[in-house]
């Protein structure tokens, strides 16, 4: 009996056709468990972000299956993928990507407008998350007035708002200094462990990557190596 929240089975993604075909991700098989934070590292163009986009329901794989908490998202249509992104996944993008004209609290509550949730309960949850992440003081400031670290913590809080099973994080510390970056990643890790989520964090920053529970290296679209629990990492090349 596995406790994997995310199961990737032979996932591949190609762009273009014929001579112009680019294989961005090749035959990746991987499990990520509940309460586990995984760092995905590798050079630019190695396929990390493409993999993250597929797991997040932003891209459809060319081949393979992506099962999230028992749900094969590769079978989803457009509407189901939207609901999946809304309810099952939390995104933290590089540069936080806040709605600039909303306050920190409103940036959290925005996810309640997409439907499928009790908005009263969300208000309570937003206040709770802002408190936990040390943002209560700036909750009513518009995001353009927040510091980089505060914005990233708001982004983490927003990702957790609908209690998703999986958090996907893309270069969360790219615009932060190392001290601030460490605090943001630690805050994220604490939330992942405390709330038993799973998390994939794509990063170029080795110091940040090492703060995760497991480190996975990507090269040329394939899993190259995995730290801590190599037995869960299988790619056709590795085999």
């Amino acid at each position: 009996m596995t406790d994997a929240i995310l199961e990737l089975r032979g996932v591949s993604k190609s762009f273009g056709e014929g001579d112009r075909r680019v294989d961005a991700v090749r035959d990746v098989t991987l499990d990520i468990d509940r309460g586990e934070m995984v760092s995905l590292v590798g050079p630019s163009g190695s396929g990390k972000s493409t993999l993250l986009a597929m797991v997040g329901g932003l891209l459809q794989p060319t081949a393979g299956a992506i099962v999230v908490d028992g749900e094969d998202i590769t079978r989803h249509g457009k509407g189901a993928r939207t609901r999946y992104r809304r309810d099952r996944v939390g995104f933290v993008f590089q540069g936080s990507n806040m709605v600039p004209f909303l306050t920190a609290r409103e940036n959290l509550l925005i996810v309640g407008e997409f439907g499928g949730v009790d908005r009263g309960a969300l208000r309570h949850r937003a206040d709770e998350l802002l408190e936990e992440l040390g943002l209560a003081r700036v909750r009513d400031q518009v995001s353009s007035q927040l510091s980089g670290g505060e914005r990233q913590r708001v982004a983490i809080a927003r990702a957790l708002m609908r209690d998703p099973v999986l958090i996907l994080v893309d270069e969360p510390t790219a615009s932060l200094n190392s001290e601030l970056g460490s605090r943001v990643v630690d805050a994220l890790k604490e939330e992942i462990h405390g709330r038993s989520k799973a998390c994939i964090m794509v990063t170029h920053d080795e110091r940040m990557a090492e703060r995760a529970d497991r480190l996975i290296e990507f090269r040329d679209g394939r899993l190259h190596s995995a730290d801590a629990r190599p037995e869960t990492v299988r790619s056709s090349e590795a085999r």
């Binding site: 997040g56 932003l58 509407g79 939207t82 609901r83 992104r85 809304r86 309810d87 939390g90 995104f91 993008f93 990507n97 709605v99 600039p100 925005i110 996810v111 407008e113 997409f114 439907g115 927003r158 990702a159 609908r162």
Partner: peptide, 15 residues
């Protein structure tokens, strides 16, 4: 880009 982000975090095109 903002609309793309909102779609990425679960906003439907209809919304």
């Amino acid at each position: 880009s903002l609309l793309g982000i909102l779609k990425a975090i679960g906003a439907s095109g209809f919304y």
